[in-house]
Nucleic acid binder design. Structure first.
Lengths: 114, 114
DNA sequence: ATAATTTGACCGTTATATGAATCATAGATT
DNA sequence: AATCTATGATTCATATAACGGTCAAATTAT
């Protein structure tokens, strides 16, 4: 991550992060699991869990999703136990194969206008 | 991330990552945006976008969500343009304030059994 | 009221994600 | 068919995410 860039995020992104963060904390508290316990089950440190529950954008998405999985939080409207996501994945990947593999800019008009 | 841990992910997590990855690629291709162009708009490098479209779990969640935002992909059933997510966020955060701030293990029975 | 544990806030270290660059391939347009 | 650009695959350098620990504060259970 060279060239330290101060990254900005859209409101939508910040809202989505905040939603997921509070869903995680709500689920954890409702299930009476301490931060330490959840972190251990997820194989992460308590400090990382802290950042996630604070909606820090700079966390590995895999870890965050794994927490959702452990806590039974639905992603893409599919609960971890339902198995729906697998089908959605297959469907979505099939759709992808129907699209062109590459995108190309339409050739510029040769006679450039002024 | 000291103590190099080989992290594992549940099927649910992998599916969710794959769904999001193919949603991103599908949207990008359908909107005829090249990887380079999208990366620039998102303020990331093309190589990072490549990893995200390959469902790599070790990417910043903020970047991934920002791509969803740019491409109009719905997170938590709310399109970026709708503004629904903001309300959902507020609601969810209010719910959180109603829960106990800490979790505590119920005290063990004093008269331990043998 | 007391006790004890959870949580928040740090900090230093280390593994690693990201950025930048290059090269080969091949798909899309003409 | 030919051209040209988009993509995939690598590699290296660097900023930083995650870890592990500590300490104080405060909430919850007794």
């Amino acid at each position: 991550m060279p060239k330290s860039i101060a990254r900005t995020y859209s409101r939508y992104t910040e809202d989505a992060l905040a939603v997921l963060a509070s869903l995680i904390r709500s689920a954890r508290v409702q299930q009476r699991i301490s931060a330490q316990q959840l972190a251990e089950r997820a194989g992460i440190s308590r400090s990382t869990l802290q950042r996630i529950e604070k909606a820090d954008p700079k966390c590995e998405i895999g870890i965050v999703f794994e927490l959702a999985s452990l806590l039974g939080i639905a992603l893409f409207d599919a609960s971890p136990s339902s198995g729906e996501l697998r089908r959605y994945r297959t469907l979505q990947e099939e759709k992808l194969t129907l699209l062109p593999e590459r995108v190309r800019q339409p050739a510029r008009e040769v006679d450039d206008d002024f």
